[in-house]
Design a protein around this nucleic acid. Structure first.
Ligand code: SF4
Ligand code: SF4
Lengths: 154, 154
DNA sequence: TAATTAAAGACCTGAATGGTCCTGTTTCGG
DNA sequence: CCGAAACAGGACCATTCAGGTCTTTAATTA
């Protein structure tokens, strides 16, 4: 359905919420903040930690904190870390389609793939923040609409 | 994984291949052309017929043919027909997230959602054709890159 | 050093998708 | 008129993988 996995969605939410906190935050605390079940939060944080998005502090009084600012994290990188590389079809980067058919559309899909990926690359988590970032997002969508107009005009 | 469902992929391929044939084509024939298993081809064609993408001719010497030209079909419309509306997250159009959490990011996701959807709307199946359409696709990607550059420059 | 606390890893369950098949209806050819 | 061919529609099963739960392991602190 061209939908994002729920884990990836949660990862974005968790990172944004984590960025709004001070100091280290524990998994149960983040679960309370986000409303996501605690084990799931822990699982997501594990993945994010393994990919260097958050720094973990073990032991008593431990927890997580961001490894870098939200502005330095793109939506695409988080999705790629949680769900694997963005690939609309099976034939990206020259990989063979399981049916072994050479439909010749691979190149076209690669183009679309790259377009969507780069679009998501250009959106930072900072832009996803609700409050004061609304204007930022609207700013970006205005740019996108302009781009869209340009492309449709062709 | 932000991947397209296989059925949707097949639908695109089948439509493009169907557009390259003359007259009506049977499911088995299309299966031979595309390499997709025949029952799956039939299933996809049924869906496409129900949504008005192809016209069906029943009985002996029957088959399928395009209802309109490839240029009049967008990638997004085919995906929506096969897989349902494009929606990255559970909270689009004001629908509530199943966790019931008001994370406040919904608006931002809606923006991204719309951007991707409109991008796919702007790509026609004619642009997906392999041979002479390559230049067309490259043409489009150049436009997208320009748009990307504009947005990143902000 | 021992108790406390949280991260890290392994495991299991269930829903959704993909794929298959069967029956009925319609049309053309003999 | 009869039979073969092809679509229409639905039901059915099998597989995958996302989602969630559990146990183990390590670090911090008193
Ligand atoms: S080769 Fe064709 S059918 Fe296979 S994944 Fe690529 S576009 Fe889809
Ligand atoms: S409300 Fe938040 S967590 Fe729920 S689907 Fe929307 S963005 Fe994701």
């Amino acid at each position: 359905m061209l939908k994002l996995s729920r884990l990836a969605d949660y990862a974005i939410v968790i990172l944004v919420k984590l960025g709004e906190q001070d100091g280290v935050v524990t998994s149960p605390a983040l679960a309370g903040i986000t409303g996501v079940p605690e084990p799931t939060v822990a699982k997501v944080l594990k993945v994010l930690s393994a990919h260097g998005f958050v720094l973990s502090q073990r032991g008593a009084k431990g927890g997580y904190r961001l490894a870098r600012s939200l502005a330095e994290m793109s939506v695409a990188s988080v999705i790629a870390a949680v769900d694997g590389q963005i690939a609309l079809t099976a034939c990206v980067g020259g990989r063979e389609c399981d049916t072994g058919l050479s439909c010749g559309l691979c190149g076209s899909w690669d183009v679309i793939n790259t377009a969507i990926r780069s679009t998501l690359e250009g959106i930072s988590l900072e832009s996803m923040r609700p409050k004061e970032a609304c204007s930022t997002v609207l700013h970006q969508i205005n740019k996108l609409n302009v781009a869209q107009t340009i492309r449709e005009g062709a």
